[in-house]
């Protein structure tokens, strides 16, 4: 056990491990690239949908059921399925990652919009604001903390799942996990796992910190 930890520490800190085309630095960048692109694309699709549902209260069942569906859908199956259907290119992985990000963002945006005090929106309409004005000047700013939470949760979920890109022969930090599993190299598998875990936790903490500093003046739902 101690020997294993020592090997692991050596693996994680060895300079050779960090450099080169298969080095940790490159893999880390690949991983972040997949995750950021997928989260961004997910946000572009999901934010308007969430805002629309939240503003009009139409199709609310969609926002509510999407969450349950997203939770029940086995990610591994989704990635495998899209990959088998889409062939050997990166876009099936993106499709799967985006499909993961969308429900979280939609439901949280919707939750943020419904949490806005109806008296406030009534008042906004009362002073003569149009629908879009109410949406962008009142509802969205008030819902922003929860919208941000949705983005953060989506991001973490995508970062975790981007590991699977390596399973279907692409890069990212999952490379070490799946190469290690194939080569029965426990140290490499563990090293990859540590890296993925550290990246996810650090990213979550960083984004939580960012949210806190952005919404410092908000009393409760600021996180």
């Amino acid at each position: 056990m101690l020997q294993l930890l020592a090997d692991l520490a050596r693996w994680l800190t060895g300079p050779a491990q960090w450099q080169g085309s298969g080095g940790i630095a490159v893999r880390l960048l690949e991983h972040l690239e997949y995750s950021l692109l997928a989260t961004l694309a997910g946000a572009v699709l999901a934010l308007p949908l969430g805002l629309f549902i939240g503003h009009t209260r139409r199709f609310a069942f969609l926002a509510i059921n999407l969450a349950g569906f997203g939770r029940a859908l086995p990610t591994v199956g989704l990635v495998t399925l899209v990959f088998l259907a889409g062939g050997l290119s990166m876009w099936p992985v993106y499709v799967a990652l985006i499909a993961l990000a969308v429900p979280v963002i939609v439901t949280n945006t919707y939750a943020g919009m419904t949490a806005v005090d109806p008296d406030v929106t009534d008042a906004a309409r009362g002073v003569g604001m149009t629908g879009p004005q109410v949406l962008f000047k009142v509802e969205l700013p008030l819902a922003l903390p929860l919208v941000m939470t949705g983005l953060r949760l989506a991001m973490i979920q995508v970062v975790s799942t981007a590991t699977i890109a390596a399973y279907v022969s692409f890069g990212g930090l999952g490379r070490y996990i799946f190469d290690g599993l194939a080569q029965r190299d426990l140290v490499q598998v563990l090293g990859g796992a540590v890296l993925v875990a550290v990246v996810a936790v650090l990213l979550d903490l960083a984004m939580a910190g960012l949210q806190r500093s952005l919404f410092r003046n908000r009393p409760a739902d600021a996180r």
């Binding site: 990610t75 929860l146 995508v158 970062v159 739902d221």
Partner: peptide, 11 residues
């Protein structure tokens, strides 16, 4: 609370 219950988990 409102959010975490609506959250899933990736991989």
């Amino acid at each position: 609370s409102t959010t975490a219950t609506t959250q899933g988990k990736g991989v």
